[in-house]
């Protein structure tokens, strides 16, 4: 007899805790405003990442297609994974002097760990992190990018 009573009590107490837990579920069903689910990619238009967000490294260009990279290779040296490769060339200036400028700023997104050390090391603030986070591509080779735009040149006064 005692065992049966104990058995029934345990069932009742189990049901009580079940109802207790379900009360929270009921609360959120009746309060849809407290639900925080976002409908991605439907909200692509309004979804904005924070300014600090580390998406990928970009080389900033102004309207005249000029960048600020002097080709000093500080980012290439500081990168732990060999993500950045700077290929430079020598051009002749109008006054006859030879000057080193970047030919290609190669960035391997597939190797990047987003540690932000390159951004900190840049003496001219030429590179920054973009807020773009949709990096998926169909082929791995597309992840190797040349960051300086074709025909771009060094901004006046940056040294």
């Amino acid at each position: 007899m005692k065992a049966i009573v104990k058995y029934i009590i345990s069932i009742i107490s189990a049901l009580r805790t079940l109802i207790k837990g379900m009360a929270i579920t009921g609360h959120y069903i009746s309060h849809p405003k407290e639900i925080i689910t976002q409908q991605y990619p439907e909200n692509r238009e309004t979804l904005k990442m924070f300014d600090m967000f580390r998406g990928e490294v970009v080389l900033t260009h102004n309207e005249d297609n000029e960048h600020m990279c002097t080709g000093c290779s500080a980012c290439e040296v500081v990168c732990p994974n060999g993500t950045i490769e700077i290929i430079s060339k020598r051009i002749e200036m109008p006054d006859g002097k030879k000057k080193k400028v970047i030919d290609k700023f190669v960035y391997h997104l597939s190797m990047c760990t987003f540690c932000n050390l390159c951004i900190l090391s840049c003496p001219t603030d030429a590179i920054k992190m973009s807020q773009d986070f949709e990096h998926a591509v169909f082929d791995r080779s597309q992840l190797t990018k040349v960051l300086n735009k074709p025909g771009s040149k060094l901004m006046e006064g940056v040294r």
Binding site: M49, F50, M52, F53, R54, T113, F114, C115, N116, L120, M129
Partner: peptide, 19 residues
């Protein structure tokens, strides 16, 4: 994410302080 830019692999410390 707002303060240091990364969600999980933060890398917010540098020797001598913060990034």
């Amino acid at each position: 994410e707002e303060t240091c830019g990364a969600r999980l692999t933060m890398n917010y410390n540098v020797p001598g302080g913060l990034m």
